[in-house]
Design a protein around this nucleic acid. Structure first.
Length: 359
DNA sequence: CAGTCGTGGAT
DNA sequence: TATCCAAGACT
């Protein structure tokens, strides 16, 4: 009797070759391109990544180009995609590969694992998918698929860090083409063995699934609960000077680290907009004519919610020295013209605010 | 190791 | 509307 890994691998391969989605990163075997796709896909939906992947590779077609680029260019290409640390780590990773490996992406998981931004999963994915060499990989999809197949009810044993999943995943990719089987496991989780309402009728390994046999597919894996997101109310200030708007680069650590945003100021009891005093304290610019918008911009993060109250203000004439020519990036500040988007990291929340303010 | 880190789609 | 959570890595 074949063991479980072989019984799963046998139907998974043909199923994947027939039912796989046509995705841009499946049309290449270039390890760098696959690496980029894996980083973009971390915690991010396929539909979202598709809008960025091609453009990114056009701009940074190989390790050397990415390694030689300025970080701001990389963040500009990543703008709107979220989890911006990934972009920084990918950039650092390209420099690492350029310096340590002559620009050639390593073909084994152990060496890949040393690249900034490449964790256990991504190392396995690049090895299996790009090099077609067996290396275990367990992401959220694989963890869910393997948890259901084995009807694992213990939450600690269900998640992607569970040792049992890694052992089984290794055996599965060793039972045939790692390139095919690695993607087959994830594709099954993404399209059939979905978190909600799995399509067990379409599953090629239904006969091996203990959760299905016991009718437990809806309760495995167990839903994990999160704490409530704290809500923060902030003024989002458009400081206008010489027809331009002030953007500030956020702190190098924390939320939206190093990304460019409107100045944000804690909103307390005031209703008519941030006070000139608070704006001056936050930006160093004296302002007048503050005008608050009626509706806030709501921006939801994983662990908090921002209620952003946009308001416009005008720098006072005494502060208009050099206003005409001051369009460059100086000391974490940037004065942009309406519609202008400099090649720096600009998160979605900034775009939402600029749109609300009509800039 | 539990918390942090974006955004958007589905229910 | 509220909640979940998606091809995780890092601290």
């Amino acid at each position: 009797m074949l063991d479980l890994a072989h019984r799963l691998a046998k139907p998974l391969g043909p199923w994947f070759l027939k039912h796989q989605r046509d995705l841009a990163w499946r049309r290449t075997r270039d390890p760098y391109s696959i690496w980029v796709s894996e980083i973009m896909l971390q915690q991010t939906r396929v539909d979202t990544v598709e809008a960025y992947y091609g453009k990114f590779l056009e701009r940074f077609p190989d390790v050397g180009t990415l390694a030689a680029a300025d970080e701001s260019e990389v963040l500009a290409a990543w703008s709107g995609l979220g989890y911006y640390r990934r972009a920084r780590l990918l950039h650092a990773g390209a420099r690492h590969v350029a310096a340590q490996h002559g620009g050639a992406v390593p073909g084994d998981a152990e060496t890949l694992r040393k690249i900034p931004g490449v964790g256990r999963y991504t190392a396995g994915a690049i090895t299996s998918i790009a090099f077609d060499r067996p290396a275990a990989l367990v992401d959220g999809n694989v963890a869910r698929v393997l948890s259901r197949i084995q009807a694992i009810s213990e939450p600690k044993l269900q998640d992607a860090g569970a040792a049992g999943h890694w052992t089984l995943a290794q055996k599965i990719v060793e039972a045939g083409s790692p390139r095919v089987l690695a993607q087959a496991l994830m594709e099954l989780g993404a399209t059939v063995c979905t978190p909600v309402a799995p399509k067990c009728g379409e599953c090629p390994v239904r006969s091996e699934c203990q959760a299905h046999a016991k009718g437990l597919q809806a309760s495995i894996p167990a839903p994990k609960q999160r704490g409530l997101s704290p809500r923060e109310d902030l003024w989002a200030v458009a400081v206008r000077r010489g027809g331009r708007i002030l953007l500030e680069r956020r702190a190098s650590e924390g939320l939206l680290a190093g990304m460019w945003c409107l100045p944000l100021i804690e909103r307390k009891q005031e209703r008519a907009g941030a006070s000139p005093k608070a704006i001056a304290a936050a930006t160093g610019v004296k302002v007048k004519a503050i005008e608050a918008l009626a509706e806030p911009v709501k921006h939801v993060f994983t662990h908090r919610v921002w209620m952003l109250w946009p308001c416009r203000s005008e720098a006072v004439p005494s502060d208009m020295v050099n206003a005409a020519g001051d369009s460059g990036q100086v000391d974490g500040r940037l004065w942009i013209a309406p519609g202008e988007r400099p090649r720096v990291g600009i998160p979605k929340v900034t775009e939402k605010l600029l749109a609300a303010l009509g800039y």
